[in-house]
Amino acid sequence: MTLELFAVYATLFLLSVGAVFTLVAAIGLVKLNDPMTRLHAPTKAATVGIGAFLLASMSHSFALGQGSFHELLVLAFLFVTAPISANFIAKVNLHKRACDMPDAPKHDEMWSTLDVPESDRKIATEKNGPATG
């Protein structure tokens, strides 16, 4: 009985944490005004938010007396893949020159993600404006 009560309170706490983090992620996605800043809001906060919801689901199943650890699998998968997809989206931002561009590398001509083939270079500059961004 005491254990079940504890599980109910844990579910309550984890649900609240998840709701707060998800809301912060969504507000950040809408309100921030630079592509890279926008990228960092949902990729971090939403992962923690969904992680809290998954843990809440686990502790709820313990409260019902049929405990399971299945959700940990989804949690691990999300925690592994979220940084990878964030890295890909950051590379897209750099590629499209949508953010402040970093300085050119010291020992090379340009960053590899901007290194379009000679034949496509005209199209790339036409679409994205001058190369200096």
Partner: peptide, 27 residues
Amino acid sequence: GPDTGDRILALDTMVINAIGLIVLLGI
């Protein structure tokens, strides 16, 4: 979303929120 990166990010966030909705439905 002014650029492609923002649209991809929005779709990614929507998928993650959909996972959260399904988890909540399970609860």
